[in-house]
C-alpha cells in the first residue's frame, strides 16, 4: 500500500505542507517494503488548477492513501474518483503522521474546502 504526504522538505522529519496542490514535494511511503521516496510536485508552479494536477500526479503514482491537512473541492473529486482514501494529518513531522496512521489514530478527512479563488483550484 502506498501512502502519500505533502511535505515541505525531502526528509522524514519534514513538516507536512499546509497546501496539498502547491506542496513542493510528496513523500511516498510503501507500507510493505517500508521504502520512502520524495517526488517533486510539478503542479506547484501551475497557473491554475494545481490541486487537480497534484491529484492526477498521485493517481498516476498509484497512491492508495493520502495524508493531508486539507484538500480542495476539485482535487478531492479526482482523488475520490480514483478511490484514494484521505486522512487528516496531525501537527508534527511526516514520520509522526505515518506512525499515527499505522496506529489508526488519523481521522478520515471529510471537510473539503471550496478553494481560494472563487473558481479554479477548488
Amino acid at each position: 500500500m502506498k501512502i502519500a504526504i505533502p511535505v515541505d522538505e525531502k526528509n522524514m522529519e519534514a513538516n507536512v505542507c499546509i497546501s496539498f496542490g502547491r506542496t513542493p514535494y510528496f513523500l511516498i511511503h510503501d507500507t510493505e517494503s517500508k521504502e520512502c521516496s520524495f517526488l517533486d510536485n510539478s503542479a506547484a508552479s501551475s497557473q491554475g488548477g494545481a490541486g487537480i494536477k497534484a491529484a492526477q500526479f498521485l493517481v498516476d503514482n498509484k497512491t492508495d492513501i493520502l495524508l493531508t491537512p486539507r484538500c480542495g473541492e476539485n482535487a478531492a473529486q479526482v482523488i475520490k474518483a480514483a478511490d484514494i482514501k484521505m486522512y487528516k494529518t496531525i501537527p508534527g513531522s511526516a514520520r509522526d503522521n505515518i506512525n499515527a496512521f499505522a496506529e489508526g489514530k488519523l481521522p478520515v478527512l471529510e471537510e473539503i474546502h471550496a478553494g481560494f479563488h472563487g473558481h479554479g483550484e477548488k
Binding site: 503542479a43 501551475s46 497557473q47 491554475g48 488548477g49 494545481a50 487537480i52 494536477k53 491529484a55 492526477q56 493517481v59 476539485n74 473529486q77 479526482v78 474518483a81 480514483a82 478511490d83 473558481h119 479554479g120 483550484e121 477548488k122
Partner: peptide
C-alpha cells in the same frame, strides 16, 4: 495550462469552471 482536465480510471474528466 490551467489543469482543467484529469484522466482517472480510464475516464477523462473536464473541470468546466477551470
Amino acid at each position: 495550462k490551467f489543469n482543467a482536465l484529469a484522466y482517472i480510471k480510464n475516464r477523462l474528466v473536464v473541470f468546466d469552471e477551470v
